[in-house]
Design a protein around this nucleic acid. Structure first.
Lengths: 233, 233
DNA sequence: CAATCGCCAATTGTCAGCAATTTTAGTTGC
DNA sequence: GCAACTAAAATTGCTGACAATTGGCGATTG
């Protein structure tokens, strides 16, 4: 298992920072799906006490990135096809609500910000900076959710997007149809800006549907998904 | 602040049980909204260590029932009109997805179970056992969500329903139109059983809309809600 | 008298150690 | 050689003590 850097430097609470470090290691694939996490080992590598690691792991468990078997073990969550289906269907519902609300209270300044992010996305893709493009894509969706002015929704969305990122890494996901992707985003942005709540909601939901359909198909017995299966890595 | 009973008896993990006890006290209104919770006091009353209480409070924070100000205090969450609006809009989105999925994989046995719960609800209301009716109502919605076979959705729904219950207690909510309520539930049940996903989703979402409209209206400045305002109890 | 500074009590944050439980490895009997 | 039992090693669960931070109270000063 990989080495972690010490947390003794900065401020903020140790358990939050420990959670951040472990989370990023999971999202970067350094801690693979279903791998075991030992409290002792983490506490040594992060140079904090076991109680602090415990608190961090509890946070990550509530985020769905790790799971706990009582009196036994902590594990990085799995990322099966079923998990992917759950993640994308839930994301669709949340972003549908978010886009609808965002359209209802969008302001001209918001419109500018959204269009800016949209053009950044376009540029990153055209320059083939795909890692940046993915980050900007996440930023864009987060920005739309922020417009909904809905604290609980924003929090749920933050959590599900962590899981989306995790699933993308574990399943080796890479978008294929970049042109279609750009078109979808542009449509969504314009619908939100136009204040068309119904249309924005429909677009936000359909944005995830390609994924859902692909995953639903590979859930049928006998059908293999068209990419790396990540049942147990 | 009220007395809590000791947890030393049963088995299961102490922090979970501590969380359960504190949660039920919050949901019963014994710990009012915005009231302060002291780790030391809770640990004495529950006869567990402060670390265990801490873990329990962290769980409840992730459920949205308590909030934390670092190095200062834990508080029971507030239950303002905005909170209510957030809770019911989010619930609508989750139950919409749930009902839609439930309709897609309902079986004849499921149909029987749903109808049984429905008739229990009807009986409880007609016998004016309103507390039971509320519990059965929660059971019914949970049963539909369970049919969706969606672990993450079920978990999110469980959490939001805790918040719904909390908000109902804090705002002194009581349904007014029981006949309409029964009709709505019956329609929803039949749509799910019929496998009509779109219709089930629409009904599940509109089921929360009366609440949302009421809350949205009272969010407008100058308009007072038609029931007890619970901004700070 | 108002404002500001510094001290003190109260409260949360972190730690190291002991207890409970599970898993593993070894041993014994068949 | 295999199954079942046993002991011990590893790991998580829980606790009490100490450290860090905050907010309030009172003294001091303009």
């Amino acid at each position: 298992m990989a080495k972690l850097t010490s947390l003794k430097a900065e401020k903020r609470q140790l358990d939050r920072r420990a959670a951040d470090h472990i989370r990023s290691h999971i999202l970067d694939g350094i801690f693979p799906a279903n791998s075991r996490l030992l409290e002792t080992q983490l506490s040594e590598e992060l140079e904090v006490s076991r109680g602090t690691v415990r608190s961090a792991l509890a946070q990550l468990a509530s985020e769905g990135l790790v799971k706990q078997v009582a009196f036994t073990r902590w594990e990085v969550s799995g990322s099966s096809t079923t998990d992917g289906w759950e993640i994308y269907t839930l994301r669709g519902a949340l972003e549908g609500l978010g886009a609808s609300l965002a359209a209802a209270n969008v302001t001209p300044e918001d419109a500018g910000r959204l269009r800016t992010i949209g053009s950044e996305l376009l540029r990153a893709i055209s320059e083939r900076r795909f890692q940046d493009a993915t980050d900007i894509d996440f930023d864009l969706h987060a920005a739309i959710i922020a417009l909904a002015r809905h604290r609980r929704l924003a929090e749920q969305h933050r959590l599900i997007m962590h899981q989306v990122r995790f699933h993308m890494v574990q399943s080796g996901f890479l978008p294929k149809d970049y042109d279609g992707l750009i078109a979808e985003h542009k449509e969504l942005i314009e619908a939100v800006i136009a204040g068309d709540a119904d249309r924005a909601e429909r677009l936000a939901r359909s944005h995830n549907e390609a994924e859902v359909r692909l995953l639903t198909a590979s859930l049928q017995p006998g059908v293999q998904p068209g990419r790396i299966a990540a049942e147990s890595v």
